[in-house]
């Protein structure tokens, strides 16, 4: 915590409203701050605007009213500190695994030698060094997601935005990917904003869950998750975890019933 003055939150939304062109209100008066190093999960029913909120934080979509700031900057200016991981792996099918991992750095004009070095390190990190020369179509869903993560991490982000990244994976792969993500998180000390509709996943990953309600999307509840670190298979079998999942599920249900 040497860098960044304590007073500036990593991500801050103040009275943010997002209305689509057709008039539907996706998000209504959202005020939310995420401190450095937090792992915040946005949880809510479909249509609550949780993905839209990520798009606002990344500046990919403009706010209708209110203000979003990232490290005190506009989202556009802060982009070099953020990486976005999408629901589908968004790999370029004509590039090999290695070339896909290097894409972000290539676009940012990172020097070739440094790029090569980091791609190598990232492939080791996510355990894909063996398949570096394969094309995306030759990979399983989990492997594709790992490539996507490696690509995001290669740019050395401080903030990670993840939009239901594991939704398309089977449950076992998803659990494993969750643990891998947390391993990277504890090593690299990012700030994470994670979107999911899985209560179990939200509880397992987060330091805090923000429950959103739909129509219009708004913050309905916040749940602090105080499960001990490091989290692993044992965490999933613990009583505390079970209680938190039950608790979060109940709140989500209440929110959904209005």
């Amino acid at each position: 915590m040497v860098n960044a003055p304590q007073s500036i939150p990593e991500i801050a939304l103040e009275g943010v409203t997002k209305r689509f062109r057709k008039g539907a209100v996706a998000l209504q008066d959202i005020t939310l701050t995420v401190e450095r190093g937090e792992f915040v999960t946005l949880l809510g029913p479909s249509g609550c605007g949780k993905s839209t909120l990520l798009k606002l934080v990344s500046g990919l979509s403009p706010v209708t009213a209110g203000k979003v700031s990232v490290n005190g900057m506009t989202p556009e200016d802060a982009r070099s500190t953020m990486s976005f991981i999408f629901q589908d792996a968004t790999l370029l099918p004509w590039r090999t695994v290695e070339q896909n991992v290097g894409l972000g750095m290539e676009l940012e004009h990172t020097a070739r030698s440094l790029r090569k070095e980091r791609v190598h390190a990232m492939l080791q990190l996510v355990g894909l060094a063996e398949v570096r020369d394969r094309y995306p179509r030759q990979l399983s869903g989990g492997m594709k997601m790992r490539v996507s993560i490696a690509r995001a991490l290669a740019s050395r982000p401080r903030i990670l935005l993840l939009d239901e990244p594991f939704a398309a994976l089977d449950e076992m792969t998803r659990d494993r990917m969750n643990e891998e993500l947390l391993r990277h998180y504890t090593e690299q000390k990012w700030t994470v904003l994670f979107v999911t509709h899985s209560v179990a996943e939200a509880v397992f990953l987060s330091t805090r869950i923000v429950v959103l309600a739909a129509h219009p999307g708004r913050v309905a509840h916040e749940i602090a998750i105080d499960l001990p670190w490091t989290r692993n298979e044992a965490t999933r079998e613990s009583k505390a975890y079970e209680e938190q999942v039950t608790h979060a599920s109940r709140i989500l249900r209440e929110v959904q019933q209005g």
């Binding site: 990919l60 982009r79 953020m82 976005f84 968004t90 370029l92 894409l103 972000g104 676009l107 740019s155």
Partner: peptide
Amino acid sequence: EENMVHLFLMHKATPLQALLKLRLP
């Protein structure tokens, strides 16, 4: 795909980069 375009935007790709490295291939 829109997400691909967004990915390029997140990495500050110029329109030319998006054309050469995304749209053309």
